[in-house]
């Protein structure tokens, strides 16, 4: 192949990968509201009276550790809110039920086990606290 054409192909490869990366990054850490379905049975998951932050992690996951710390801090400082971390390899049926396609994925459950919001990727504390305020109300705001 002509070197100039090869250079153009290589440039296109870099540009295309950059666009994919930017598009992916825009989806990360965003709190998405999800439609409230029926109560779901969650065997082995103890729900908190306010909200439960259900974090799906895996062995091969760099941002899971940081997310676990952020969620742990929020749970510790917010009455009625608990953080539960689950390894997808140990509970693949739960990962399938919530359609987990990346780790970490965090699902915000209410006291009845209904999903209200979910966050794909590393969690930003401020965005999640705002969502919890909406869900558990004044109790969360006071503590936060």
């Amino acid at each position: 192949m002509d070197p100039l054409l090869a250079l153009a192909v290589v440039g296109a490869l870099v540009a295309g990968s950059t666009l994919v990366g930017l598009a992916w990054r825009a989806t990360q850490g965003r709190v998405r509201r999800v439609g409230t379905a029926d109560d779901v049975e969650l065997p082995g998951v103890e729900l908190a009276p306010g909200a439960t932050l259900l974090q799906f992690s895996s062995e091969y996951c760099s941002p899971c550790r940081a997310t676990a710390r952020v969620l742990g801090d929020i749970a510790a400082s917010t009455p009625g809110v608990a953080h539960i971390e689950i390894d997808v390899a140990e509970r693949p049926e739960l990962a399938a039920r919530f359609g987990v396609l990346q780790t970490p994925t965090t699902v915000v459950l209410d006291a009845a086990g209904r999903a209200h919001a979910r966050v794909g990727g590393a969690v930003r504390a401020s965005a999640l606290r705002a969502e919890l305020d909406r869900l558990v109300g004044a109790r969360a705001s006071v503590a936060a």
Partner: peptide, 28 residues
Amino acid sequence: FLNAAFGYCLGCRLYLLLVRGGLIRKRA
């Protein structure tokens, strides 16, 4: 490149797909 520039981990996603597909399973 995605890993270097954006911190995206393709291998991690492949691992998750293998887990979801039942090809990797750990005992609870």
